Amino acid sequence: MRIILLRHGQSLGNVDELAYCRIPDHALPLTPTGERQAREAGPGIRALLGDGPVAAYVSPYLRTRRTLELLDVADLVDRTVSEPRLREQDWGNLQDPVEQEVHKRRRHAFGHFFYRLPLGESGADVDDRLASFLGELHPKLLGDPKHPRTVLMVSHGLTIRLLCRRLLSWSIELFESLSNLDSCGHRVLEYTEEGWRLDRPFDQWRESPDGTTQLVPSVP
Rank of each mutant, 00 (worst) to 15 (best):
T192I: 10
R46Q: 08
R161M: 08
E101M: 10
L163T: 07
D72H: 10
L12D: 02
V151Q: 07
G185C: 11
L142A: 15
R65T: 12
E17N: 10
R161V: 03
L68H: 01
L18A: 09
P32I: 10
V54C: 06
S11T: 10
F110H: 14
E121Q: 15
A56S: 10
C164Y: 02
R36Y: 00
E83N: 06
G50L: 08
E69S: 09
R46M: 06
V219H: 10
G123H: 05
P84R: 02
G44F: 12
R39M: 02
H186A: 14
T150W: 04
D203E: 14
L137T: 02
W91Q: 06
R149K: 15
L30T: 03
V81C: 11
R79C: 04
I3R: 04
G9M: 00
K146H: 09
R116L: 01
L94D: 09
D75K: 00
R187T: 08
E194W: 09
E176T: 12
G123S: 11
L163N: 04
A27Q: 15
P84N: 06
D125Y: 01
H156M: 01
R105L: 13
T80N: 00
Y191S: 08
F114G: 12
L189C: 12
D16K: 00
L30A: 04
R116I: 01
V73G: 03
D203P: 13
V58M: 03
L174N: 05
V98W: 01
R206C: 15
R105M: 11
D75F: 00
L141P: 03
V219L: 11
L94H: 09
C164R: 01
V151C: 09
Q89C: 08
G50W: 08
H156I: 03
R200E: 15
T159P: 06
T213Y: 08
R106W: 08
L86I: 00
I172D: 13
H138K: 01
E193F: 01
D25S: 13
L130A: 07
P53S: 12
R129F: 08
L215P: 00
P84W: 03
I3Y: 11
L68V: 03
P145F: 02
I45N: 03
G195R: 07
D25V: 03
P24A: 10
G123K: 04
F133N: 01
T80L: 05
L6M: 13
P43E: 12
C164Q: 02
G42Y: 11
V98E: 14
W196G: 09
L48A: 12
L162C: 01
G92L: 10
E83H: 06
R87V: 03
Q100F: 15
V188H: 05
T31G: 08
R65L: 13
M1H: 12
H8N: 13
L158K: 00
L167A: 05
N180V: 14
L181R: 05
R106H: 08
L137C: 01
Q89V: 12
L141G: 01
G111M: 05
R187H: 15
A131K: 13
L119E: 14
S218N: 07
P32Q: 07
F175I: 00
L18R: 13
R165K: 15
R161D: 09
L70W: 04
T31Y: 09
G44S: 13
V102Y: 11
S171D: 07
L18D: 14
S82L: 15
A27M: 13
R39V: 14
T150F: 04
R85W: 11
M1I: 10
